[in-house]
């Protein structure tokens, strides 16, 4: 299964909140997706902000549609918005959006304030930063470490007695770094669970048991988690023990 859907950023926009004037756009078209027209998107988002304001709704951060996830940050009268696949982790979007917002304001914040008319060419050089952030990894791993870690994931899943059906390694924001036989629906659910961990200090492991899965999330090292999807008809305790053993092995091959 391709991880593409869990990573696809479709477009990024910066526009003035009040007027809807667009300062910056960047789109990433893939084979199976087309990016909506920038003017339509900005008009839609501006209308949504007005609606939220007039309805006294709290600050908008993420809006989900069937085929799209919008994530926003509003700062200094500007709106920074990402359009992504609905399977991209909201935490990862937030991490990247916060970072790109800070980089933009540090570089152009004063200029924007002083601008009488928007000259989008001023921001041309910012494209390379945007590409680097959106196409980069939130938890960089050497490909040699990835290959070695994948070996341990396969070994874990191929043990018949513990009921492990799939495994993946993700960053703390839900950026999937590698996976082996993970079910797509449970992958999406697992990524959503990460929201919980941002409210905890130094999470060690998390277990969720349902009729569909025994899901174990185990911290490997700072910013890195191993997720294992277990068959709920198998014992949970044995699964957790085996997962912790795999984590110990993966730790040894990942530089801290």
């Amino acid at each position: 299964m391709s991880l593409e859907k869990f990573k696809t950023i479709k477009a990024f926009f910066i526009f003035e909140k009040e007027t809807g004037n667009t300062l910056f756009t960047r789109s990433y078209e893939t084979q199976d997706t087309t990016t909506p027209d920038a003017h339509l998107v900005v008009a839609f988002l501006t209308a949504m902000f007005s609606f939220a304001k007039s309805s006294s709704l709290s600050e908008l951060r993420v809006v989900d549609m069937t085929d799209l996830r919008f994530s926003f940050i509003e700062r200094d009268d500007l709106v920074f918005a990402i359009l992504a696949s609905p399977l991209v982790s909201p935490l990862d979007l937030q991490f990247k959006l916060t970072t790109i917002t800070s980089l933009f304001l540090a570089e152009y914040g004063l200029q924007v304030k002083e601008m009488q008319l928007v000259d989008t060419e001023v921001f041309e050089a910012f494209k390379s930063h945007v590409d680097e952030v959106f196409l980069g990894e939130t938890r960089e791993m050497l490909s040699s470490s990835k290959n070695a870690a994948l070996f341990y994931l396969k070994k874990l899943v191929q043990q018949n007695d513990i009921g492990a059906r799939g495994a993946m390694i993700v960053s703390f924001t839900g950026d999937i770094l590698l996976e082996y036989r993970m079910d797509q629906t449970r992958m999406a659910g697992a990524i959503r669970l990460l929201n919980v961990s941002t409210y905890m200090r130094n999470l060690r492991y998390l277990v969720v048991s349902s009729e569909a899965t025994n899901l174990v999330a185990y911290k490997i090292s700072e910013g890195l988690l191993l997720y294992v999807d277990g068959d709920p008809t198998s014992g949970l305790e044995n699964l957790v023990v085996k997962v912790s053993e795999t984590v110990r092995k993966v730790k040894e091959i990942i530089p801290h």
């Binding site: 970072t99 980089l103 930063h129 680097e132 952030v133 980069g136 990894e137 939130t138 938890r139 960089e140 960053s171 703390f172 924001t173 700072e222 910013g223 890195l224």
Partner: peptide, 10 residues
């Protein structure tokens, strides 16, 4: 966790 990202130099 930001020390691990691929674009930290930015």
């Amino acid at each position: 966790q930001a020390r691990h990202v691929s674009y930290s130099h930015l």
